[in-house]
């Protein structure tokens, strides 16, 4: 039992369960999953579906944070990816063309690779602090997305594109399947190749890694490219789900949620050891929080307050200084007894 509670992910998982269970009191059918037209429906499926963009972004963010960095530009990359895809699809003579949609998706992801390279080079070659380096793309990227769409919401009516965010395959939402695939690829790539351990080495101790002959530069650039690609896929899912590109709303403030998810998942902001599973759990937890506030009936906006409380509690519980203060209090308080 203690081994269980001591597990890194015990508390986030427990909070997630409590959140989900608390929904039942307000929505008795919360846990029921129905089959309709061969598709699964239900609140749990909704939680999963709505969490997909955040899970993806958090996944990329995890790897960047593991290298000792941070990526603030993910939201803007989401917006750019959505804008590029919708523009290209909008220009298609026939929006039903699967080939045309695939080309648009490929273009969006290709552009994300370039943006990731930009971030990675600024951080690892020019040597700019990650927060600052990615701030540039965060600000300018949003403008580029708006420039692409001329500030309009670009609507598309392309059934093949719609599949990405709203389609079903084998009774499951396609977006959930895509995310599952990306998670699987990320896990295999980091844990089956040597990528994971080398990234952790670089993040944990740049000096020791250099002396061990690790080429940190390439690894760091790859991490930022991965984060950008994840963000682009998230942007495609988001944009497909609403069948439009909204350069203002897409990925707005998602970088903060993603960083939060990573921290909840037990990856330290200082870099080193990372947990992809933890970040996925953290992202689902944040989405569940949104859904729960909705079902409980408190205004959706108050989730921000919840998040503030969660961040404070988590950070304080991770802060050695805070623990020292609390423990000392407890000890002095317990002394007379």
């Amino acid at each position: 039992m203690t081994a269980l509670t001591r597990h890194r992910l015990f508390w986030p998982a427990a909070v997630l369960v409590v959140l989900l269970v608390s929904n039942v009191f307000f929505a008795p059918r919360f846990f029921s999953i129905t089959v309709h037209d061969g598709h699964l429906y239900g609140s749990l499926i909704d939680v999963l579906r709505s969490s997909t963009p955040l899970v993806l972004v958090a996944l990329g963010m995890t790897v960047v944070i593991a290298t000792g960095g941070i990526d603030l530009s993910v939201g803007s990359v989401m917006a750019i990816a959505g804008a590029v895809a919708c523009l290209m699809i909008g220009d298609l003579p026939n929006q039903d063309s699967v080939g045309g949609v695939l080309l648009a998706v490929a273009a969006a992801i290709g552009l994300a690779v370039v943006l990731g390279l930009w971030n990675g080079v600024l951080v690892s070659v020019i040597g700019i602090q990650p927060i600052i380096a990615t701030l540039i793309l965060m600000v300018a990227g949003r403008g580029i997305a708006q420039l692409l769409t001329s500030g309009q919401i670009i609507n598309v009516s392309s059934p093949p594109f719609r599949v990405i965010g709203a389609g079903y395959f084998l009774a499951l939402p396609v977006s959930v399947l895509i995310v599952a695939a990306v998670v699987a690829i990320a896990v295999v790539l980091t844990r089956r190749s040597a990528l994971g351990v080398l990234v952790e080495a670089v993040g944990a101790s740049p000096t020791a890694s250099r002396l061990a002959g690790i080429r940190a530069r390439g690894l760091t650039i790859m991490a930022y490219v991965f984060a950008a690609v994840c963000a682009a896929v998230a942007g495609l899912i988001f944009s497909s789900n609403v069948a439009s590109a909204d350069s203002n709303a897409a990925g707005n403030l998602i970088e903060l949620d993603a960083i939060l998810a990573v921290v909840i998942g037990g990856t330290a902001l200082t870099g080193g050891r990372f947990s992809l599973a933890g970040s996925v759990l953290g992202a689902v937890l944040i989405s569940a929080l949104d859904i729960t506030t909705y079902t409980i009936g408190i205004p959706a906006e108050t989730t921000l307050l919840f998040k503030a409380v969660v961040v404070v509690v988590l950070c304080l519980s991770q802060s050695a200084a805070f623990r020292a203060v609390v423990l000392r209090r407890r000890r002095t308080a317990g002394a007379p007894a």
Binding site: I70, I259, L269, P299, T302, L304, F306, C315, S319, V325
Partner: peptide
């Protein structure tokens, strides 16, 4: 200062808190 929380995170929490309060 006292809990050695990164400024980035502490003020991020402050941002959520203030924005959340105003929405509330």
């Amino acid at each position: 200062h006292y809990f050695k929380v990164e400024p980035f995170i502490a003020t991020l929490a402050g941002m959520f808190l203030a924005r959340g309060l105003s929405l509330l």
